[in-house]
Amino acid sequence: MTKITMTVNGKAASADVSDNTLLVEYIREHLRLTGTHVGCDTSQCGACVVHVNGQAMKSCTMLAAAAEGAEVTTVEGLAASKDDLHPMQLAFKENHGLQCGFCTPGMIMTATDMVKRYQEAGKELTEDAIRHELEGNICRCTGYHNIVKSIQDGASKMTTA
């Protein structure tokens, strides 16, 4: 067993977990934040993406212990408040960027990370860049068209602040 301590969605969280507990397992089963999904179990589909210290990570292949002391954000903690939507969440909703919804939280977490990185680097987030950046997130329903549209729309409404 290992004692882990981290901040999840702005709140302190700690627990004694077995050494091999995955970050996604800790988030879903201990903290009951089930918006982070497990799609392929092997870090290829991207349904499990969360932010660890502000960076997109696939939580299905990261040990919870490896996030010791980290700031973790899940899709549940993305919006400024409970009644709000983050601009990227709103964009996915309004641009029909989802069908079955299973990949959506991972898509949104990857998208917000991508926009932030490009904005911070002062680089333009072109359509080609979005395609490239989304290589690690699979959607089987939409054909990606509305996902790209959602990310473009969300990016235009996000500021680096």
């Binding site: 089930t34 549940e76 969440q89 909703k93 309004e94 029909h96 989802l98 299973f102």
Partner: peptide, 22 residues
């Protein structure tokens, strides 16, 4: 062209699939 009824739940991670039901 109404959005998917569960879109607000999907974008916030609140939509429950089988493995999410307590």
């Amino acid at each position: 062209p109404t959005p998917h009824d569960a879109a607000p739940l999907h974008v916030t991670g609140a939509a429950r699939y089988i493995d999410d039901i307590p």
